[in-house]
Simulated scan of single mutants.
Amino acid sequence: MKEVQKYPDARREEKLQAFDRLLTIMDQLRNLCPWDKKQTIESIRHLTIEETFELSDAILENDLEEIRKELGDIMLHMVFYARMADEQKAFDMADVLNGISDKLINRHPHIYSDVEANDEQAVKENWEKIKLKEKGNKTVLGGVPNSLPALIKSIRIQEKARGVGFDWDKKEQVWGKVEEEIQEFKTEEEAGNKEKATEEFGDLMFSLINYARFAGINPEEALEKTNKKFIKRFNYLESESKKEGKQISEMSLEEMDVYWEKAKKL
């Protein structure tokens, strides 16, 4: 193993005590609180998903204080799952933490072994190859969860394919594919072939996501920022027109556009 400089952490003992405190509180809640006693691994699943989206919102807003709070909520859920699994004699928090530590060591042979990886791409390729061996997947894409949202699934599919060398060489080639897909979609849409146009639109989105990857842009993050921007501007349009006694449903597009242009300058 290569010699690694230890991160100076004056609060390490305090962090360990804080984690022990959370484990203790979880024990108390599981034994004494009627609601916590009733929960199962399945029953809190939807709450975990909600907390994850709340963390995502805080990250997009770059709100570090809110990120701190949401990380605490998610940490609670992780401790909760481990406690319930421990009750079933399946695994406990020590198994969880040792498992992830072992995984990190195994997937970073350029740090903990003699493998060379001098750039980010080499690290990613090693990661995907090791992951494929660990999971015993019969196919490269076998590890992509079926339940992932389509946009995120596209990103993961493309990353995994790249991990084994199946990818374009230059982003100019990818843009050429985008232009090709635009034309194919336009042809089918203008012909009124909805089923084929839908298929071509999916191809177009996939190629745009691919280009975003080459450009170093996270397309999910980019789209969510646009969503938030649109909501902010539309809310301004709605509130400001209402102040002037106008009903948005009765306004023309030209009237709305006046407020929209003002909102863009805020």
Rank of each mutant, 00 (worst) to 15 (best):
K160E: 04
F19L: 15
K38G: 06
R107F: 10
E134W: 09
I209S: 04
T24M: 13
F166Y: 14
E255Y: 02
D203Y: 02
I152Q: 04
R12G: 10
V144C: 03
E195L: 13
V144A: 03
N235A: 14
G142M: 07
P149E: 06
K242A: 06
E159V: 07
V174L: 05
D167E: 15
W260V: 07
Q121N: 09
D92P: 01
K138W: 08
G245Q: 09
D102I: 05
L60G: 08
E220K: 10
N218C: 12
E240Q: 12
W168P: 01
Q5R: 13
M26F: 05
E116V: 10
G176K: 14
I49F: 10
A18V: 02
P8A: 02
N146V: 07
K2R: 14
P109W: 06
E200Q: 08
K129Y: 04
V115H: 09
T139H: 14
G163I: 02
Q247N: 15
F166P: 03
D95M: 00
L16R: 15
S252I: 09
L237W: 00
E159R: 08
K138T: 09
M75T: 09
K229S: 07
N193Y: 13
P109N: 07
L76W: 09
E3G: 08
K89E: 11
A212F: 15
S147K: 09
E70L: 00
D119Y: 08
A122Y: 03
N126H: 05
L141G: 08
S154N: 06
R68F: 13
G192W: 08
A94W: 05
E180W: 10
D63A: 06
Q39F: 04
V164T: 15
Q39M: 14
A85L: 13
M251C: 00
I231P: 01
L22H: 01
E190H: 09
E255G: 00
K232A: 13
Y81F: 13
N106K: 12
E3C: 10
E180A: 10
E128C: 13
N137G: 03
D257C: 05
R12P: 09
E134N: 09
K194Q: 14
E61A: 15
K37E: 11
E116S: 12
A212E: 05
L141D: 08
R156T: 02
L16W: 14
S241A: 12
F80C: 14
I41S: 15
M78I: 13
S101N: 15
A263V: 03
L204M: 07
T139P: 10
A215Q: 11
P219L: 07
S239Q: 11
A117R: 02
Q39I: 14
I111Q: 00
Y211K: 06
A150P: 00
E181H: 05
I105C: 02
D73P: 00
E250F: 04
M78K: 03
S56Q: 11
I248C: 03
I248L: 06
I41D: 15
D73S: 04
R107V: 13
